[in-house]
């Protein structure tokens, strides 16, 4: 891999990590309202999969969508303002952390729901011969939702060009995947006639390679594909989570496989520091801008409810 690509990937991953850590701080200081689901530890799956997509493709994501959003758009200001509830946020503060929109990028807070909506999006892209595919990020917990199975069944029947990018971080909130998932993940895809693969790696470039293969398969064959990505969130499920359901030893084992640290180790120190400084400055500028920005004018609160 060329050094410039490595630096670029590192910058994207570091931006997500630093962003999420800063969000957690803002919550602790009482500056944010509600909750949020950080993706600390899962930066490689977000950046890896998004790197394999074309800019005209379509992405759907979940409650844990900041990483996907930043990898897709790089819009730190829009995301920060959204989480801070400002009119300058990508959804003017209406959606907040879990309900994000950017061009060709959609998230919602209902577990599994967007995998099904994404399936329909893929059918629309196919029908209109756009050549675009859809990538729907889902979690291991979403596999317990019937809606996802209904949609994957249709995706296979009707040849939907969709990549289900399943981030298996072993947990759905406090519940381990072994307590919620009977059988296996790949056998589920097999039963539906959907191609699949599992990537167990903290190396973002291996994730990119597997994602590129999957994306190419989806685009060339106009068929669905399930890519299981083994990963781990180092943080709690949401802001209020002491992680009492797992041991610090387990976390330490996974910390040794931190995808960001792994990539950082392969870079020149000066390059790294420059990237990190740039990311931090972007985040601070976004916070400063959001602090100064107004909330949406209450007179506009009904806009967009009914389209004409």
């Amino acid at each position: 891999m060329a050094t410039c690509a490595k630096l670029d990937i590192y910058e994207q991953m570091y931006l997500i990590r630093a962003f999420e850590e800063r969000i957690a701080e803002l919550f602790t200081r009482g500056e944010l309202f509600g909750t949020t689901h950080p993706c600390i530890g899962q930066e490689a799956t977000a950046v890896g999969v998004v790197t394999a997509l074309e800019p005209t493709d379509v992405v759907t994501s979940t409650h844990r969508g900041h990483g996907h959003f930043l990898a897709w758009t790089g819009d730190v200001k829009g995301l920060m303002a959204e989480i801070m509830g400002r009119a300058t946020g990508v959804c003017a503060g209406r959606g907040g952390s879990q309900h994000l929109y950017a061009e060709n990028f959609y998230t919602n807070g209902i577990t599994g729901g967007m995998g099904a909506v994404g399936t329909g999006m893929a059918l629309a892209e196919k029908q209109q011969e756009s050549g675009n595919i859809v990538c729907s990020f889902i979690g291991d917990g979403a596999l317990a939702q019937g809606i996802l199975h209904e949609a994957m069944n249709m995706a296979s029947l009707w040849n939907a060009p969709i990549l289900y990018a399943l981030e298996n971080n072993l947990y759905a909130m406090s519940t381990h995947v072994r307590d919620t998932l009977a059988g296996g993940i790949v056998p589920r895809a097999d039963a539906l006639g959907i191609e699949s693969a599992t990537v167990e790696s903290e190396d973002v470039f291996e994730i990119i390679e597997a994602s590129e293969k999957a994306v190419e398969y989806v685009r060339e064959n106009c068929r669905p594909y399930l890519l299981e990505l083994r990963t781990y969130r180092f943080c709690g499920h949401s802001i209020n989570d002491e992680r009492a359901y797992r041991t610090r030893e387990e976390e330490d084992e996974w910390r040794k496989r931190d995808p960001l640290a792994l990539l950082a180790g392969a870079l020149d120190g000066a390059d790294r520091r420059e990237i990190e400084g740039r990311c931090q400055a972007r985040i601070e500028r976004a916070i400063a801008a959001a602090r100064k920005a107004p909330v949406q004018d209450l007179g506009d609160i009904g806009k967009g409810l009914w389209k004409s």
């Binding site: 994404g118 399936t119 999006m121 893929a122």
Partner: peptide, 14 residues
């Protein structure tokens, strides 16, 4: 449920 979800996606994309 799947049908309404999938058609919602179709509607979002033209």
């Amino acid at each position: 449920a799947g049908t309404v979800a999938v058609t919602t996606g179709m509607a979002l994309r033209g």
